[in-house]
Design a protein around this nucleic acid. Structure first.
Length: 571
RNA sequence: GGCGGUGUAGCUCAGUUGGUUAGAGCAGCGGAAUCAUAAUCCGCGUGUCCGGGGUUCAAGUCCCUGCACCGCCA
């Protein structure tokens, strides 16, 4: 059996994600996971929250809660939203888990033993009032270049000049506003990625068929300027994974934690460990991650937004390869561009756009899933507007698919009752339909196998359209008057198409697919091997019920109201 | 500033290694049908493929350059 390991970029714990974040990694990953399961693969689909770092500490402080409590609560919030969108993770972990602590410390120890860790002393700004070192962007002051009063320590937002925090005039802490700052020396660990440059380069070159977006970003970081830079992997913070060398202390690094970007990707592995621990004694996580323990024939696919590509093509592989241990590295890396909102960017900080909780309060998950996936920003950034969302969803889901289910089941109910009618035989038009569907099914599978999401969606839609075309051509409402047997055969085909569509559509719209299968009272939800056989699954006499309207249409009033409501600040 | 991306029909987007009259969905127009959520089906596109150069027998597709928009800068 094919085995597929799928990871979605892990969302930061700080706040609820917007639809752009969702379509950037979790949603396409879920589509693929569901598809692989439907095709009979053994699938391990992993996601988690990314919980460490300064923003989490500050958000917790703002909420007046201990950071651990804050993260636990936000994990639950994100978990519930993921469930709401029907994201079918096998495990939704936390980067703060004990498993990740142990594994991150393990990797650091191995990298150190391999000579890939340096200790370096640097100067950083310390805030006496806050009792902590401040990251560059948490220091503000007057720009020495343009005089802008709120320039940040890394860059002036007004004149865009790159700055060092010590350049600022009258620097102050963003956290407390305190000007009681001083420069202190502090020691940090650096991962000597530069030593791994050639190995990483060769590793990237050995990958086949990765998106241009992926490889071009990786190559840029490898070869641009002075090449791949060593990277600090520790921070002076309280909240994080304590710096240790495996299970031994790390002299001189007391009170420091690993940098969030070091431990976050390791959480993919640790989350699988969390999964195994939750399953019980029989579950084995290493067969997914250790090529010496069964992972050599696993196909590992990662999903992420383009901003995460450098970490997944360079930093994380550097950790895995540098450890000297036989860890599984990614086989295919699907990176996505950004979704824009009505002419601008989605913005978490400015509350612009639609956030996951808001989306679910407006419409069922399937509406969002379908629109977002059928417009996934694969080759370039793409645009969400309420107008296109309304017309596309109404047309595709309500008119083409939902109405097909309605017209078929209601016609059957009125002429033959709520069971699959007997009588008649299939003829030339049914043969032609089966052939068309066979061709399209093959294309659909090809796109899904290749993770070409928009094309897969278009093909699936075409499969739905084929049913309407058939029905229009067969016209059972007309044949019923002259040849009821013929009409029975036609409607038997149409009822079977509903089941067939449910199976094929399930990765995109799982709830509607379930409603369709329930309506058809179909037990057989296996992926079709052969179209003709699949369309004979519901035999004469099989009882069904007419489902409720699958997709109510979005009205103009709703659309106008929503466009208005989400144009500005998040409430 | 450096780097990268994008610019194709009213809208959202496809266009493989350069090769026949540049495509899809939506919207629009016309028609058919009336089983169905006024839902379906059929037919209809004279688009400086951002501008300007160049390479080539041949460029939306390669090179140079200009413009516009966007992103990233650890």
């Amino acid at each position: 059996m094919a085995r597929t390991l799928i990871t979605s970029a892990i969302p930061y714990i700080n706040g609820i994600k917007h639809l752009g974040n969702l379509v950037g990694s979790q949603l396409p990953a879920d589509l693929y996971a569901r598809y692989c399961r439907a095709r009979g693969h053994e699938v391990m689909f992993i996601c988690a929250t990314d919980e460490h770092g300064t923003p989490a500490e500050l958000a917790a402080a703002k909420a007046g809660k201990p950071v651990a409590d804050y993260c636990a609560e936000m994990w639950q919030v994100q978990r519930d939203l993921a469930d709401g969108f029907r994201l079918s993770f096998d495990h939704f972990g936390r980067s703060s888990s004990p498993q990740n602590h142990a594994l991150t410390q393990h990797f650091a120890g191995k990298l150190d033993a391999a000579g890939l860790i340096d200790e370096r002393t640097s100067k950083q700004v310390y805030s006496n009032a806050d009792g902590r070192f401040l990251p560059d962007r948490y220091i503000e002051g007057t720009c020495p270049n343009c005089g802008f009063a709120d320039a940040r320590g890394d860059q002036c937002d007004n004149c865009t000049k790159q700055l060092d925090p010590t350049d600022l005039i009258e620097p102050r802490s963003v956290i407390s506003g305190s000007t009681d700052l001083e420069v202190r020396e502090t020691k940090h660990l650096f991962l000597r990625q530069s030593l791994l440059k050639d190995r990483l380069d060769a590793w990237i070159d050995s990958q086949d068929g990765w998106p241009v977006l992926t490889t071009s970003i990786a190559k840029k970081w490898l070869h641009d300027g002075d090449g791949l830079q060593d990277r600090g992997i520790t921070r002076d913070l309280d909240w994080g994974i304590p710096v240790r060398k495996g299970d031994a202390p790390w002299p001189g690094m007391e009170g420091k934690v690993f940098y969030v970007w070091f431990d976050a990707p390791i959480e993919y592995i640790a989350a699988t460990h969390e999964w195994a621990d939750a399953q019980g004694a029989d579950a084995d996580w290493q067969r997914w991650w250790r090529t010496d323990k069964g992972a050599e024939n696993v196909n590992y696919v990662q999903f992420m937004g383009k901003d995460n590509v450098p970490f997944h093509t360079l930093s994380f592989p550097a950790t895995l390869l540098g450890s000297g241990e036989p860890w599984k590295t990614v086989d295919y890396l699907k990176s996505l561009n950004y979704l824009n909102y009505d002419g601008g960017q989605f913005s978490t900080s400015r509350g612009r756009g639609v956030f996951m909780d808001q989306a679910l309060s407006l419409l069922p998950a399937d509406y969002w899933r379908w629109w977002l996936l059928s417009h996934a920003p694969e080759s370039s950034d793409t645009e969400f507007t309420w107008e296109t969302f309304q017309t596309d969803v109404n047309k595709d889901l309500a008119d083409v698919l939902g109405n097909f289910v309605s017209r078929v089941t209601k016609f059957c109910r009125s002429k033959f009752g709520e069971e699959v009618p007997a009588g008649g035989t299939w003829g030339a038009s049914e043969t032609a339909l089966i052939e068309t569907l066979g061709t399209r099914l093959k294309a659909y599978q090809g796109f899904m196998d290749g993770i070409e999401i928009r094309k897969a969606a278009a093909e699936l839609r075409a499969i739905w359209v084929a049913g309407n075309e058939y029905l229009q051509d067969a016209a059972p409402w007309a044949t019923f008057k002259t040849d009821p047997e013929r009409a029975a055969a036609q409607i038997r085909m149409a009822l079977n198409l509903i089941r067939f569509y449910a199976v094929l559509s399930r990765p995109f719209i799982p709830d509607a697919a379930t409603a369709m299968l329930d309506g058809m009272q179909a037990d057989d939800d296996a992926w079709p091997d052969d179209v003709k056989t699949a369309l004979e699954a519901l035999q004469p006499g099989h009882v069904f019920t007419v489902p409720e309207v699958l997709f109510a249409k979005i009205t103009d009033e709703q659309r106008l109201e929503w466009a208005e409501r989400f144009a500005g600040q998040r409430a």
